[in-house]
Amino acid sequence: MICGAGCSRNSDERPEAITDFYRDSFEVIGRGTWSFVKVYLCKGSANAYAVKVRQKHKMPVRQTWKYAEKHKWEFAEEKKILSKLGLHSNIVLFITSFTEQAQHFQVFERLYGADLYPSVTGKYGGSHCEKDVVGYMRDILNGLRYCHEKKIIHRNVIPPNLFLTNSGSVKLVGFSLALYAKHDAGCYGIVGTAGYRAPEITWVDVYCYRVDLFACGCILYNLLTGSHPFIHNTRERPFSLTPAWKLISRWARDLVTKMLFFDPNKRITAAQALDHPFFHDVGRVGLNDNLTIAVEELTKFTEHKLWERVASCDDRPYLCQSLRIRKHYGKV
């Protein structure tokens, strides 16, 4: 049995303290805005687990006193979503959670590897091909398709939330902004990371699972060209101006275009994307077997954390484009 997993099923049997099942190794393997990830060892088997620790006193003052109940509810909702996901080869496995007076703990399987982008640039060092990208994107889309079948929207598919394991598979992590779509009517709320956020979220409009596919389009473009599709201007097809764009296969260009449609009704779904020729014609001559330029640019993109600059900028490119689209479809 996984350490503490059985006890998480029955609150009467589970002690409140995480230290009843795990001991802290004091090894920090990741940090976020309001949380960090440490390695804990199971007392019964000495197996290692990754524990996400959210400290209440590290949150802004306005969140600690005015929104204390809100964050308590959000933590409970996140636990429900993680529990619904269960076991999948392309999603980090959630074990259990603990709540103490000053901290929230979430226990996950310990993953061995690194974030996807640093792994790509470090592993290939100038030798990178579309066949590699096919494998990465297939794993990402498989994970998202599973989430969407469970009626869960990730809403924050960004580079730090993609983990490449030592076995070569990509796993989705970072479900703190995920949402359980109870109804088919759609969802509301401005969340996610600007630059990977779908335009309909910026419109403050109703949205659905396809917001994750827009982020996937940005990720796929990153891996193929080494840059971001919307970092230069506000044209409807700004990504076609990148020099590396002309070097990738037509199937890759076609998939990126279908993922980055500003109109969500035209945007491809995860299941449809997995049926795209890009994933089934790996042996064809059209696939580029040398994406050296992409690796060089992706190295700069990763080392200088350019994705954070894109994420920290405002959404004027989206707003300019969305206003034109909303006017065209009679939404303004």
Rank of each mutant, 00 (worst) to 15 (best):
A198E: 07
M137C: 11
L87M: 00
V285W: 11
F262G: 03
L213N: 08
D132Y: 10
N233Q: 06
F98N: 04
R197F: 02
G44P: 01
R309N: 03
F163R: 09
A76S: 14
C208A: 15
A185L: 08
R110Y: 15
K327R: 14
W251D: 11
N265Y: 02
L93W: 11
D139Q: 01
W203E: 08
G286Y: 10
T242A: 08
R110L: 15
S11H: 03
G217M: 07
F21S: 10
R324W: 07
I140G: 10
F214Q: 14
Q55D: 13
D12V: 05
P159S: 05
L93T: 15
F262T: 08
T96G: 00
I81Y: 02
Q321N: 13
V295N: 08
S35M: 09
F239W: 14
V157N: 04
A252T: 05
H232R: 07
E100M: 05
S127D: 10
K66L: 13
F261D: 14
Y207H: 10
S8N: 09
G86K: 00
T299W: 12
K84I: 00
F175R: 00
D314V: 01
L298S: 12
R145E: 13
A48P: 11
T225L: 14
L247G: 08
L144S: 03
L162S: 05
D184G: 02
F239A: 12
R138P: 01
A194R: 13
A68C: 10
S249G: 12
Q63G: 08
G135M: 03
R324M: 02
F230A: 11
V170D: 06
Y124T: 15
G125H: 15
G44L: 11
V133P: 11
M1S: 05
Y22D: 06
H276L: 04
Y49S: 01
I95A: 03
R210A: 14
L298Y: 08
E308N: 03
N265T: 06
R197V: 10
D20Y: 14
W307N: 13
H104S: 12
T202C: 13
V28G: 02
I268T: 08
F108W: 12
Q106T: 15
L116H: 10
S119V: 07
T19V: 10
K66W: 12
I190Y: 12
T96N: 12
R155S: 14
T165D: 07
F261N: 15
P160F: 06
N222P: 13
Q63M: 05
Q106I: 12
I81S: 06
E149Y: 00
R316Q: 08
P160H: 06
L116A: 05
K80C: 11
I248K: 14
G217P: 05
L164F: 08
C147P: 00
I248F: 07
V37S: 15
Y22H: 09
L306C: 08
N142M: 06
G126C: 09
E16L: 07
V120D: 06
L306T: 13
W307Q: 09
A48S: 14
I248H: 04
M137N: 04
L298E: 02
